[in-house]
């Protein structure tokens, strides 16, 4: 079983809810448990919020592209923006920074988080294993 879907959103925070719905739909089809689905929604939403906030030099004219793919063992979600990662180190201006917290949440909630710089933008790749696959991975150390 392999399922794949691909879509783009305009780079606006109001589209986060749509992204979460799409992720939830795909995770349900792939048979993920409710808690896992919830956690991947948070992680993806963080990645997309980062892309909108820091990977979109032209604001809503930019797009964020998502690829969601799952098989019997895992789900992989790729988030590609049109920005440059080095421009987005945490700047707090005296406010609590949620940026660091966002990346922390992604790593806490997913089994793999990879951030890759590309010529045309930053790619965040998130992987969550299905429960039996995760137990196997832990058993293997």
């Amino acid at each position: 079983m392999v399922m794949k879907t691909e879509f783009s959103i305009a780079s606006e925070m109001k589209n986060l809810a749509v992204v979460r719905q799409r992720v939830e739909g795909m995770a349900n089809e792939c048979g993920f448990a409710e808690t896992d689905t919830y956690q991947m929604k948070v992680a993806v939403s963080e990645a997309v919020a980062n892309a909108i906030e820091h990977g979109s030099p032209n604001g809503p004219k930019n797009i964020v592209h998502l690829i969601i793919e799952c098989n019997s063992q895992s789900i992989t979600i790729e988030v590609l923006d049109q920005g440059v990662f080095k421009a987005r180190l945490p700047v707090t201006n005296g406010r609590p920074s949620h940026r660091g917290r966002g990346i922390f949440l992604m790593t806490a909630l997913m089994d793999e988080v990879n951030i890759t710089e590309r010529q045309n933008g930053t790619l965040v790749r998130l992987v969550k294993l299905k429960e039996p696959a995760r137990e196997q991975k832990q058993a293997m150390g």
């Binding site: 929604k41 948070v42 919020a49 949620h98 917290r101």
Partner: peptide
């Protein structure tokens, strides 16, 4: 549902 922006708001 809550994400890191919501958490930042609680802390603020």
């Amino acid at each position: 549902y809550i994400d890191s922006a919501g958490i930042a708001l609680i802390i603020l």
